[in-house]
Amino acid sequence: MEKGFLNQKSFEIRNKVLDIFSYGNRGHIPSAFSIVETLTTLYYQYVDIEKIKNNSEDRDRIILSKGHGCLSLYSILHDHDLIKEDDLKTYCRPGSVLGGHPTKGKIVGIEASTGSLGLGPSVAVGMATELKRKGSPAEVFVLVGDGEINEGSVWEALLSVGNKDLDNFTIIVDYNKYQSYSSTEEVCDLDPLKQKLEAFKLKTFEVDMINEPESLLLCLQEKVSIPKAIICHSIKGQGSKLLEGNLHWHHKSYLSSEEVEKVRSSLKKRQL
């Protein structure tokens, strides 16, 4: 697929993220922005979205373990007609099925409720185990944040999956280098992350999601016989000149419409 698609689609998804945010005036925009290219690659270029729409037993499963990045997920599921515009407009409001963290069972395509960090990987191990047991060709992807993997539960799951013959399991780490308080380096340095994941017996890839996000697709397509890990190097607030690397936006809520539009005007596309 041509480079222009991912560039253009990511730009559109970020625009929609701002729309959804403004409906509820809550949410984590920078955490959503850093995973746009990753989710766009998965949902538009890799998985069979029709199987997800039909809730097919053989559908690939994507778990957004960093549930606070859900604005991007909602934006993409809306673009695939899995969330109605009317539902987006009730985001974080009374009667809504869409909140600041995604809940399973309300929207097709949300495979597990997330928001309590570190819980997604074990659920993904279970799904991959059961799908493999049933002889399904489906794959399971779990997207975690870099701050999220401070949670010990993530490593319990990886310790388990590294000892399993699960070639249908992929954990993707959104390594945007910032967590709530400060840089990951200052709060809880993860490096050497690749070696850690390899030590847990995962086939580990690294992708530069800032300059070469197209290479994520190649990593996804590479067939390996063991569980896979992909470290996606990104920037918190990616795709916005205003937000990139500015930690004060992480918990920012109740933005005025002028502020939202200021962020919108800061959105950028990559120079191809």
Binding site: S122, V123, A124, M127, E130, V140, A157, S160
Partner: peptide
């Protein structure tokens, strides 16, 4: 968590 994932897959 693993049990939940297995249950979600049937």
């Amino acid at each position: 968590g693993m049990a939940a994932g297995m249950a979600h897959a049937g």
